[in-house]
Nucleic acid binder design. Structure first.
Lengths: 211, 211
DNA sequence: GTTTAAATTAAACGTTTGTTTAGTTTTGCA
DNA sequence: TGCAAAACTAAACAAACGTTTAATTTAAAC
C-alpha cells in the first residue's frame, strides 16, 4: 500500500496521539488539528477512524515483521551469542517503533477479534517461535538447561522491555531535564536494560540448581 | 470511605467494564445497564465518571498498599527464601486484583498527573523499594551479586507477570474450553510463572559470570 | 485554455456522550 | 400517620463525537 506525503503525515500524527492519549481519547479533530488538515480528510483518505488505525497497524506491522524475519538469518557462533544478538535486535525494534509498540500494547488488551487481533497474535507467536528456536539450539549443544519455559521467556522479554521503557517515561515526567539530558538518560537506561536482560537470560538458561 | 451495597455494585461493574473495554470506550450507560441502575445514579453517587474511576482507584489502591506493607514484616530465613516469598505474595496480589491491575496498567500510560498519577507512582516506588530491600539483605550476607540493577528487577517482575497473564488471556480467547478447563489452565500457568520467575531471579542474583 | 478528476473546505448531519433537572418513590424517624 | 431526607427515575440538556454533504479550489491532461 502506497501513501502520499499527506496521508503519511496524518498517520504519523495519529500514531503519536494514539500512543500518548489512547485511541478512544483521541478525536479525529485532534488529529486534524495536529496534522494541520481538514477534519474531513481522515474520512476521505482512510474511510473511518477505525480504518485509520488499521492502516497504521498494517504499515508498522509490516516493518516489524521484516525485522523479526531477519533474525532467523542471523549467523552467529555460540548459543549464548545467539541469545544476546536476539535481545539486542528485539530491544532495537521496540525502541525504534516505540510509539507503535505503546499503542499496540495498550490496545491489545482490548482488541479481541478482527485484523488487528490477528496481527498482534502473529507477532506474539513469531516472537515465541524465535525464542524457542534460539533456546532449542542451545539445548541441542548441551549449553542450556532442558526444562526451560518458552512461553515464560518470551513474555519476560517483551514484558520487561515494555515495563522498563514505560517506567523510564514515567520517571522522566517528574524531572525537569532538557531534551538532551533526557536523551542521554534514555540511552543509559536502554544500555543497562540490554546488559541485565542478557545476563539474566543467560543465567536462567545455564544456571545449575545444585550449586 | 464507606460505600453502600449499590455503590459497591456500580464500582465493581465499572471496574470489570473498564478493564475489559478500556475507560474511554466504556460509557456511563454501559455501566448503568450492567449494574442494573439508572444512568443518573453514577453522577448521583460519585459526581462524575472521572470521580468514579478515582473512587475505584482509591479503594483498590488501599488494599494493595496493605498487601505490600505486610511484605515488610515477613519473617523468613535466607535471602533466597525472602525473594521467593516476595514473588509469591506479589503474584498473589496481581492475580487477586486482576481487573484493577489491568485497568491500572492500561491507564497508567496515559495518566500524567493528578491523584491517580500519584497513586500509581507510589505503588511503583514502594515495589521498587521492597525489591531493593530484599536484594540488599542478600548482598549483605554475601549470597547475592553486588552489581544488581533494582530498577531493572522491579520492572522485570511486574512486566513479566503482567505480560504473562495478558498472553494467557489472549490464548484463552482462541480456545473453546469450558470455564472449569480455563480455570485449571490458568492455575497451571500461574504455577509455572511462579516457578520460573523464582528460578530466573535467583539465577540472576547468584550467577557467577566466570563459570 | 478548457475539461476532468482529485484534493480540500466549511458546514451540517445524526448519534452518543456525560451530566443535570424536575419529579416521583422509598425510607427512616418522631 | 406525617414528614423530611434520601434514593431513584425518565427526560432533557448541551457538548463532542465520527461522518457526510455540497461546494470550491487545485492539479493534471488534452
Amino acid at each position: 500500500m502506497e501513501y502520499s506525503e499527506k496521508q503519511r503525515q496524518i498517520m504519523d500524527v495519529a500514531l503519536a496521539l494514539f500512543a500518548d492519549h489512547g485511541y478512544h481519547k483521541t478525536s479525529i479533530r485532534d488529529i486534524a488539528r495536529a496534522a494541520e488538515v481538514n477534519v474531513a480528510m481522515v474520512s476521505y483518505y482512510f474511510g473511518s477512524k477505525d480504518k485509520l488505525l488499521e492502516a497504521i497497524f498494517i504499515h508498522r506491522f509490516g516493518t516489524m515483521r521484516e525485522i523479526l524475519r531477519d533474525i532467523i538469518y542471523e549467523k552467529t557462533h555460540s548459543p549464548i551469542e545467539k541469545v544476546e544478538k536476539f535481545i539486542d535486535i528485539f530491544i532495537d525494534m521496540l525502541v525504534q517503533h516505540q510509539l507503535f509498540h505503546r499503542l499496540m500494547m495498550r490496545e491489545s488488551s482490548v482488541i479481541k477479534e478482527g485484523p488487528l487481533f490477528d496481527m498482534i497474535y502473529e507477532l506474539k507467536t513469531t516472537n515465541r517461535r524465535l525464542v524457542e528456536k534460539a533456546v532449542k539450539n542451545g539445548q541441542r549443544l548441551g549449553v542450556f538447561r532442558k526444562d526451560v519455559d518458552v512461553f515464560f521467556m518470551s513474555s519476560v522479554l517483551i514484558g520487561s522491555v515494555n515495563q522498563n521503557l514505560a517506567n523510564h517515561r514515567y520517571e522522566m515526567e517528574h524531572t525537569q531535564w532538557t531534551v538532551e539530558e533526557k536523551e542521554v538518560a534514555k540511552k543509559k537506561r536502554i544500555n543497562a536494560l540490554r546488559k541485565h536482560l542478557k545476563r539474566m537470560f543467560i543465567a536462567y538458561l545455564t544456571f545449575d540448581e545444585g550449586q
